[in-house]
Design a protein around this nucleic acid. Structure first.
Lengths: 194, 194, 194, 194
DNA sequence: CATGAATGAGTGTTCATTCAT
DNA sequence: GATGAATGAACACTCATTCAT
């Protein structure tokens, strides 16, 4: 039902804010639902556990990021341009939705145990985004605009550099506005993988 | 007293292993001390709290990393070479002491709340390492081997790319041995900031 | 209204099954109504509380048992024969309606607190059955077929022995079919009170 | 350690009182420990769960009952006398330790789910007592003082009749003191199985 | 009558920290 | 210093009951 989906999104929104700000383990279910005038008991009508909320949240973020990247990937432009547009888009997204990006970097990457089933802790939950990134890299390599190297190196360059600036931003040490960095960042990223 | 320092190091070693593997919040003091045949009560003779153990641990790691970097910085070689040596040294360190690096990336960066006093969550605890990184970057810029850009961009490039590969390594998705990546990684890093 | 009574019986049937199988405290209202395609909210149109459902259920069982016993009591036969017929009838009932008997022994006798009002926890709820049992005993004593002893002793002999075999049956330790025990059981019961 | 065993017994004693009086599910760990000036947290230094406390409690009771019965079984007397001594001993025990017997009948027999592992809900936990009962019955049969019938019938006669009087006693419907019933009860039991 | 979302008090369990020995 | 029993606040999750629709 639509109504149910709406409520789920509302909960996820609150969770992203709280988890990204205070961390998963320092946020109680009560904290999550207080923001949206929901009772603790009712939360469990929408998610079976706090853990599953964390998982649903990362899927939510991954889908959003994947969409942005897909839109860029689908364009018939140079890889250089794609990198630029992606960085631009990413920085804007980070500015407007810091909780999503911070959730991705802080909770998803920092608390891996939450996202594992048994011993299996892959990236399934973020695969929408990762697959799109993979596509961008492979397209660039095919068109000889990127060097043909191990995927994981290129992945580290793109995600790592963006992760770095994201972290510095969340630490509030950046002196300028985020978008001021888009030129330098996209140039750095492009140089690193071409 | 020397004896006291020895015990502290022992505790930190155990903490780094446990925290990096299971996460700070999933590791109890009892877990930390069980490894080293110490009682829970006695732990508190060495550290006033679990939190302070986390802080001491990151200082310990930061110092170790800073030393490696300082040794390289002190040499009279090109920045290109420095980057290479640093990457090489870093990968070796990661291979031999994964718990330290993983602690840095997972716990220190992923659970910032642990390392804040009041609202102040700077990098004081890792400043030994960060200062040395700053020195390498500034030296390179001065010698015109790196482009003269915002420090934080260059920082993101170096730390971000290494962070990326570190994460992939801890996720066990890398197909080759870590040191196989040193050439490509140092090249990517160098290109990104020059 | 008849319709209302039908629904109540339906609920009680489901409750007897669930309560006897999983216990009162391990069965939720949701469990009870799921079986019969009824909503949780609607349940409260028929019973004011979970507790009252437990009470109504035992009354239901007691009436059923009382009817069987009354039919036997009303016959003009020896007490020896009555005991036999009762045991036979009881074992058949147990075989066909284990949930009723198990509810009686497990929930009604094992969770007395549910059936008390204030401090008053009598047998009112099972009085239909108990009165009929009392009648059988007193008739037997009058006819000098049973020894004239404290009612509670005779009661313990009849109900206790049947309770014993019921328990063993529900634990699935009996090697033979229930009705195979009717001869021995009725003999034992008869001997014990005559 | 002895100290530890002492505390465990203390907890079990309190649990037997509370569980037998209010039922397992209506007694909180807090209730159990309040009686003995222990904190909730400390309880978990002695038992891993509330459930395991229930199991340990029944083992405790079973051992106590088995001892009494063993003492009687070991004597070189007639089965008739054994039955009498056992009933006498049982009634005395019930009078002095009603919480133990009531726990056995109310919680152990009434809440079987607590004592099961997986699908396996045998009598292991009470086997000390049951084995001794089995011995008494078999000895009697061997000496031709009891009829040679299915063990479960004889078991139901002994345990059932005692269970009946126990139940009536805990319901406070008996008009006389417990020991007044020993003659009639032991006679009834003896007659039922001989 | 019927639905099922919403409520919120309640419980088992954990764990950082303390303290008597 | 060393021990580990003791403390108690905190939290995820449950579920009987209510109520808007």
């Amino acid at each position: 039902m639509l109504r149910k989906k709406k409520k789920e999104s509302l909960i996820i929104s609150s969770a992203l804010k709280m988890f990204s700000k205070y961390g998963f383990y320092n946020t109680t279910i009560s904290d999550v639902v207080k923001n949206i005038n929901m009772s603790v008991g009712n939360f469990y009508n929408y998610f079976p556990s706090k853990n599953s909320l964390a998982k649903s949240s990362i899927i939510f973020v991954s889908k959003r990021l994947a969409n942005k990247l897909k839109y860029i990937n689908d364009q018939n432009i140079s890889s250089r341009k794609k990198i630029f547009l992606f960085v631009e888009s990413y920085l804007l997204f980070l500015k407007n939705n810091p909780e999503m990006i911070n959730y991705f970097f802080k909770v998803y990457l920092g608390n891996r145990e939450l996202f594992c089933d048994n011993e299996n802790c892959g990236f399934e939950l973020a695969e929408d985004f990762i697959n799109e990134l993979k596509r961008m890299i492979n397209d660039g390599i095919e068109k000889k605009e990127f060097i043909n190297q191990d995927f994981f190196i290129s992945f580290s360059c793109i995600a790592g550099i963006l992760g770095g600036i994201t972290f510095l931003n969340s630490e509030k040490v950046l002196s300028q506005d985020l978008e001021q960095y888009k030129q330098a960042l996209s140039t750095s990223i492009f140089k690193s993988i071409s």
